[in-house]
Simulated assay, not measured.
Amino acid sequence: MKIKYLSVAVLSAMVISGCNDNDTVDGSPGGGNPPVNPGPDIVFDVENTFWDLEATSATVAANSTATAIAYYFTSDNKNLKTFWVDGSESYYISSTYSISGKDTDPSSGTLTFSLDDTDNSCKFAVTDKQTLDLTECTNSNLDVTTYKATSEREEEFKQIPEKESDKDVVNADFEWDFSTLPGGQATTGGRDFSVRNDEHNPKEIVDGAKEFNGAVKITQSETKHGFYHLAVEGSGSDDLVFPDGTFSAELVFRVDNYLDYNQNLQLIDITDGNSTGWKLVIDRKTMLPEARVNDGSGKYTAVRAVTPIEIGKYMHVMLTVNSTETKIYVNGTLETKRALNFVPNKADGDTFYLAGGSTTIKNNLEGAIDNFALFEDVLSEEQVQARAELFGFKSN
């Protein structure tokens, strides 16, 4: 995702809101038997489709100046984009929704969403994946029959930006874009990632956690697995180094296929000459994100989240570290914290590995990367929540 530092504005309107890794963990919780790759949750016919409100002659959601022109319900993180036109300006507003219905009938059910901070719901029915009926809405102004957008209209909607907001979102000190191939280009900080084994591992642009065409999808080969890497020169000469051990790291990603349950999935691996680097993995037994901070003696402190990954669904992970404590957040919510009594990441000759690791044999990321960012400070809970919301995640 190419960050625009935009978030949701409050609009008084009729709007549906809607590696082979054998280290010994110091105090980390245990796991169980490796799970089977789960299938995705049911996707209802109302989801992942542009519903073109301008294709209907019925009265549609509007306020004093703006008129809603389309809905897009994203099944991945239950993010709803409502597209508006206000004079010569077009924009969308993001919000959340929930959906219920029968697994055996994805064409109908009930949508629950927010309307001006008031709960609302509509019955929906989709015919041939082409026609959407919203009926029995608690706000009758939302009742409508609308139609699937043409491919030309879809492309028009994908170019419409999000509505700007006055909500503060902290900017990263280093950030990398994954909305163009091969991915890993710096948008802040001026340090591009390189790609290893690019020719063996196909990549394509796919929708990100929130933004259309905002992520790079990686398909790993069976023999030469690919990853991103970035050399760091050391504490005396490189601005990517955080010699006081204070930093925050953000990753927005999804796993499409867990390739080898005999290994942890390495997402980020920061190695250095002092053995004081850190990494972010998916634990092979529990499917939980876990950060590991090395102390320089061959041991590490692990902080493990409580929310497991879901195959095919995006996740926002934020790690915050200083010399006394490390925390891990998932989708904007603080899940686990642990005390530290050493200065991590002294960083003498680091290498950053992304979507893989320095000791990975064949369990690199097969999935998509939306965003990677680093901060030269420990973000507060409010700042982490705001960053997660930037990508469409709502904290608990």
Results as ranks from 00 to 15, higher is better:
residue 282 I to M: 04
residue 282 I to P: 02
residue 282 I to S: 02
residue 283 D to F: 13
residue 283 D to S: 09
residue 284 R to V: 04
residue 284 R to P: 02
residue 284 R to G: 10
residue 285 K to L: 15
residue 285 K to P: 01
residue 286 T to N: 08
residue 286 T to M: 01
residue 287 M to L: 14
residue 287 M to I: 06
residue 287 M to S: 08
residue 288 L to Y: 12
residue 288 L to P: 00
residue 288 L to C: 01
residue 288 L to I: 07
residue 288 L to K: 09
residue 289 P to Q: 08
residue 290 E to F: 08
residue 290 E to M: 15
residue 291 A to N: 10
residue 291 A to Y: 14
residue 291 A to L: 11
residue 292 R to I: 14
residue 293 V to E: 11
residue 294 N to E: 12
residue 294 N to A: 13
residue 295 D to N: 15
residue 295 D to Q: 06
residue 295 D to G: 03
residue 296 G to Q: 07
residue 297 S to T: 14
residue 297 S to W: 05
residue 297 S to P: 03
residue 298 G to R: 05
residue 298 G to E: 05
residue 299 K to V: 11
residue 299 K to I: 09
residue 299 K to W: 10
residue 302 A to F: 09
residue 303 V to T: 06
residue 305 A to P: 02
residue 306 V to G: 02
residue 307 T to K: 10
residue 308 P to W: 01
residue 309 I to L: 00
residue 310 E to C: 02
residue 311 I to Q: 02
residue 312 G to T: 04
residue 312 G to A: 09
residue 312 G to V: 07
residue 313 K to R: 15
residue 313 K to N: 07
residue 313 K to S: 05
residue 313 K to L: 06
residue 314 Y to H: 11
residue 314 Y to I: 04
residue 314 Y to M: 06
residue 314 Y to W: 13
residue 316 H to K: 02
residue 316 H to S: 14
residue 316 H to M: 04
residue 317 V to N: 10
residue 318 M to C: 08
residue 318 M to H: 07
residue 318 M to P: 02
residue 319 L to D: 04
residue 320 T to Q: 04
residue 320 T to S: 06
residue 321 V to E: 08
residue 321 V to D: 05
residue 321 V to S: 10
residue 322 N to E: 06
residue 322 N to F: 00
residue 325 E to M: 10
residue 326 T to K: 07
residue 326 T to D: 05
